[in-house]
């Protein structure tokens, strides 16, 4: 049973009462919410996600609750709660979906320490993963969404869940957040209607979400082998061009941007080094999304073996 198989009324009832339980990637979450605006958004964006009905260990017990007190009459707000605790300042009520996504990201980043959590987008083709690493504004999420629209499998637009034992990246195919101009750029790449409603005036500007493709969601138990690390940078006057990035730079960069590199200690160091050794690693300048996708497609059909490093035991 998928979330999309429920009627909106059924979904709303579950959210209000026992809470809706579903699986996304390796996680199971349970959400209680009394926010009417949230239900249709979840129904669409998480439509392909499997509902959990059997008793299970739940990774995140979440609540979305309207703000109380006098304030709600002129500026209604919504809170995000984990295990009954409010984690951060409330959002305006009509930003409930971005708040949900943001809150869940925070929960995963803080709790899933059994994974090495890199801050990259991940897409895959034929079981081989491409990690897109970039600071906010580099166009990492846009490029990720473009590749997904063009048929790559979405693993995540925010996290690489790297398993420290086998080095594989585990999927977490959730809605991919797009900001400002990126929304139209992605919309123009396809005739299908894959993008959800836009939320103007969030703290990151206007935000809309790309619905994860059904095939990506259904592959939630299939990890992928990291094969490429790409550090994209959108530059108005630079045609798509890949330049090899030195492995030591790549290691430091991935480590510095990771959510829990320091928490994982030596294990994190070796896991990133192994990942970098295994991957072909590039800087990637581009000024056009369609050409960028073509350049990365063509990279994915080549195979580059980087030279291995010398290593302590």
């Amino acid at each position: 049973m998928k979330i999309g198989d429920h009627s909106l009324e059924q979904l709303d009832g579950q959210l209000r009462e026992a809470g809706l339980c579903w699986r996304t990637g390796p996680f199971i979450l349970r959400l209680k919410a009394d926010i009417p605006q949230l239900t249709p958004w979840l129904h669409t964006m998480y439509g392909e996600h499997p509902v959990v009905t059997e008793p299970e260990i739940i990774d995140f017990h979440l609540q979305m609750r309207r703000g109380r007190g006098l304030r709600r009459w002129w500026r209604p707000q919504v809170h995000f709660l984990l295990d009954g605790n409010i984690l951060f300042a409330p959002f305006p009520l009509d930003h409930a979906p971005p708040l949900f996504e943001w809150g869940l990201n925070l929960c995963i980043a803080g709790r899933a320490n059994h994974f090495l959590l890199l801050h990259t987008a991940v897409v895959a083709k034929g079981g081989r993963a491409m990690l897109l690493s970039g600071v906010p504004g580099s166009g990492k999420s846009t490029l990720c969404a473009a590749l997904v629209v063009k048929g790559w499998r979405l693993l995540s637009d925010e996290f690489s869940l790297v398993h420290p034992d086998n080095g594989m990246v585990y999927p977490l195919a959730r809605p991919a957040a797009l900001k400002n101009q990126s929304i139209d750029l992605i919309r123009n790449l396809t005739t299908e209607n894959l993008i959800g409603p836009a939320f103007p005036n969030t703290r990151k500007g206007t935000v809309a979400h790309l619905k994860p493709p059904a095939a990506s969601v259904q592959a939630h138990e299939q990890p992928a082998q990291p094969a490429w690390v790409i550090c994209p940078q959108y530059r108005p006057d630079r045609p798509a061009h890949l330049t090899p990035l030195a492995p030591d730079h790549a290691l430091l960069r991935l480590g510095a941007n990771a959510f829990n590199y320091e928490t994982r200690g030596a294990s994190g160091f070796h896991a990133i080094a192994a990942l970098v050794n295994r991957c072909s690693v590039h800087h990637f300048f581009h000024d056009n999304l369609e050409e960028a996708v073509v350049a990365l497609e063509s990279l994915s059909t080549r195979d580059i073996q980087p030279s291995p490093s010398e290593t302590s035991s």
């Binding site: 030591d248 430091l252 320091e262 200690g265 030596a266 160091f269 080094a273 302590s312």
Partner: peptide, 23 residues
């Protein structure tokens, strides 16, 4: 026991006591 990966003349070193990585 330092952990290290060397790439040519540069080494990345992880110090398990401080938890820091150095080039």
């Amino acid at each position: 026991q330092l952990h290290w990966h060397c790439y040519g003349e540069t080494c990345l070193v992880f110090n398990p006591r401080s938890g820091r990585t150095h080039r």
